[in-house]
Design a protein around this nucleic acid. Sequence first.
DNA 1: TTGACTTCGTTGCATTTGCAACGATAAATC
DNA 2: GATTTATCGTTGCAAATGCAACGAAGTCAA
Lengths: 142, 142
Amino acid sequence: MSGFDLAAFLPYQLAVASARVSRGFADLYRAEFGISLPEWRVLAHLAGSEAVSVREIHARVDMDKSKVSRAAARLESQGLIEKRTHPEDRRLVEMRLTDRGRDLIERIVPVANAYQARILAELGPDAAPFRTALQTLLGDRT
Amino acid sequence: MSGFDLAAFLPYQLAVASARVSRGFADLYRAEFGISLPEWRVLAHLAGSEAVSVREIHARVDMDKSKVSRAAARLESQGLIEKRTHPEDRRLVEMRLTDRGRDLIERIVPVANAYQARILAELGPDAAPFRTALQTLLGDRT
DNA sequence: TTGACTTCGTTGCATTTGCAACGATAAATC
DNA sequence: GATTTATCGTTGCAAATGCAACGAAGTCAA
């Protein structure tokens, strides 16, 4: 038996934990709202800022340009967002929520907050340093 | 502007952090050893226990049966593992490392440990509660 | 033994993904 | 102003993925 314990390997633990958490949340909104994870991310980004470009989302997240683009196309065909070319820089695409999109956000945000609260409660006193550690991992490049 | 900040949402942070960490490590071993992430996981599992079945790996991880099966097929064609039917229960497939596979493990494990050490160093005093929190997330079902 | 039922690993198939290439637009350099 | 150079979003395509269905093998009960 060699000297390696995958179950104790940090990247592995992190990946499995992340997959479980994301899946758990996705099961909630997929059933109720019929959107996928990339679609949820685009919508949620739009809830925070008024008008957002594909580039902005792509830059801030590990989400490929094409993934953002396709998610946006689906959201548009569902009538949840509007896309239009930026008036000053016509390479850019401005995305913004429609009324229907905003309605959906208002219904899904409480679900999201409740889910997060449940996880934080599970973590108890480790919650605070856990979030700090995540920030560290997100902040530093390399 | 609605009241939701995706960047502060735990499942999102966790997913992005996990993707970055996994990607960073994958870049290391993909270049040097030519294996994919699912293949690495199967190999690493095999390094820990002598003979492992597809079922065992599938059960312990968020890794679909078919994903394990296909990764194992590739590893076998690369001569890194051997597959044979379990002598007592012929439904099962026993997978075990070949000598070449064991060689690869011995070279990749130091890389893995160094990568993990670097991350833990980045986290500093948050490392311990971070790992505890991960264990909590991994342990509890639901 | 037979027959219903379960479990294991593989495979088929539709969908998703990542990456590169592309056209369109803007910026920079001359 | 003309010509490179860079940026943005979409699309084509091959590979990866998840899920269901399948055959093979085992279990259980009659």
